[in-house]
Design a protein around this nucleic acid. Sequence first.
DNA 1: CCACTGTACATAGCTTGGCTATCTATGTCC
DNA 2: GGACATAGATAGCCAAGCTATGTACAGTGG
Lengths: 170, 170
Amino acid sequence: MYSGGMPSDLPALLGDLITVNHRLARVAAHAADGRESPAVWRTLSVLRQLGPIRLGEVAARSRISQPTATKLVAHLVERGWAARLADPLDARVTSTVITPAGDAALSAWRSELAEALLPMFDGLADADLATIRNAVDILRERLDGSEVPAERVPAGAASPTAGNPAGARA
Amino acid sequence: MYSGGMPSDLPALLGDLITVNHRLARVAAHAADGRESPAVWRTLSVLRQLGPIRLGEVAARSRISQPTATKLVAHLVERGWAARLADPLDARVTSTVITPAGDAALSAWRSELAEALLPMFDGLADADLATIRNAVDILRERLDGSEVPAERVPAGAASPTAGNPAGARA
DNA sequence: CCACTGTACATAGCTTGGCTATCTATGTCC
DNA sequence: GGACATAGATAGCCAAGCTATGTACAGTGG
């Protein structure tokens, strides 16, 4: 219990958060489906969540560089998990959508992952699960909300004319 | 809205957890010090936490393969952030310790990271910070406690007949 | 004492995700 | 039409991860 409450020690909290985060990532890496990489699922998640989306937006959302996004999307298209759409208004743009196959693959991965991680979370009290759920929601909101201070990320993004759904919870 | 609290939807929670986790990792990757990689800091953390430790233990703790641990530790030694000790009882063993320089570097990184992430957490209510702190503690405990994949996990995780891939779309 | 099996780490070789730098094609503004 | 900006593609590099295998030492049975 952290009833003491030490909000002033934010740096320590952030350090711990990132450390635990890395460790959890390693566990997840083992947990499910060695056949495809985490980056693939992450990209697929972005596509599912944001519908037809430009490459640059994929990159910004995933916090990866544009060339890396190109590579990943190309891989997804090869796999049949995504498809590209020409933009009738701007010939430079090619939007990407997730395909039904991609959607199914993503869902399957999530199930597989959940099953693999279950033992680790077995016996956890409902209250603890709720805490994790809340923390996940809080972090997600922060990740979605702040378009990142991003030192290195090419801070283009000057063309969000399309209504940014910004589906914030709460 | 998740106000209901649905502990039975653990699979969805785990999927979200891993997704958010991965996204946070991307942010952290940008946040601080592009000169060294996350794996370096993770390894250094393990060394600091567990004192002189065998290579195999580093690998198990970090959830990486033994050859990868060899590579990372070698890198740390080159950098002067770790040192190796021969074991007088078993000539096969070489333990590794963090050096003062490594300790300092790790601390510096944590500070830098915290500072870079601060804006993202600015304006967060104390209650939310407490929630994150608790979640971090809960997860860390689970990560430490369960020696989960034992050790040499058979890499090819057989996909257990996914009869019903959790019809719940996420 | 010597082979025989097991353990701890090192080496080799590969794949993939990530990056920067640069190029091409298109759009936009004067 | 020409200068500049923007969207994405291509090239080339490095790090982190893996499997498979090699090497040296430990322990054990004959």
